[in-house]
Amino acid sequence: MRRAPRFGVWLPPLAPSIVLLGLFVAGPIMWCFYAAFTNSALSGIAARRPKFVGLDNFTTAFTSSDVASSLWLTVVFVLLSAVLGQNGLGILLAVFLQHRGKLLRGVVGTVVVAAWVLPEVVAAFAIYAFLNAGGTLNEVLGWFGLGQNWLYTAPMLAVVLANVWRGTAFSMLVYQAALSEVPSDLVEAAEVDGAGPVGRFWHVVLPVIRRTVVTNLMLITLQTLGVFGLIYVLTAGGPDNRTRTLPLLMYEQAFKFGQIGYGTAIALVLLVLGAVFSLVYIRSLRAEV
């Protein structure tokens, strides 16, 4: 690594990315903080000359049952599908696959990753067909007389399952990489001391890969907070708004009803929720050290 050269040498190559990130990423985030306090809209007078309305959007947001219920649904969706589902199943698969034969590893790995590689909309179609009244699942459950339209009777469960199906591969790959770097003498020493497989995992492996767990949780949480297409295709937020998470509510308010200011306030709630999750994860890392 060299000492910093003149301004004219290091700035030009960095300039395009600073401009693009500033204009299209940092700019919109800043604008969130401004527009959320205005009544800007897609059309009409408010579109040309948005007025400052103070905390009105937030008062509306937090007193309306819409945002409260969407916030709750989003938290449930993230906790069940990302934290519990993707993370839990991912770590379970990584551990179970660790000392298996090549064939089993190959088959399970390929199948799980296949769901992850599919484009979001196609993954949604596959799950839509699978859970539909006339779908594969009901075809099988029908033998036991259990068939029903899952997208209608249990919509939240359906979108959670869809997200687990689609996202588990990422956590599995992350944990496979992490497990391969756990020193095997540590595990063997614990085995000599009489620790069972669960004890070995809990007291030896987990503390070693703790950082990876937190990083993975943070990434999949932020990813899941932003899920739109999957839910939009499966249920479009329905039935009866029972799967209308914050991104869907934001889309509905901002683009269907043209309430840009209100939509931005919801986007801000989403960003803050992401920040809260991230803070909890980062703190948990610090508290344990």
Binding site: V25, S40, L222, L225, M250, G274
Partner: peptide, 17 residues
């Protein structure tokens, strides 16, 4: 940090832009 930012969350202001 930005790699983790959900793009969905900034689409409303981006549309405005």
């Amino acid at each position: 940090f930005t790699t983790g930012l959900p793009v969905t969350a900034i689409m409303v202001p981006v549309y405005g832009l």
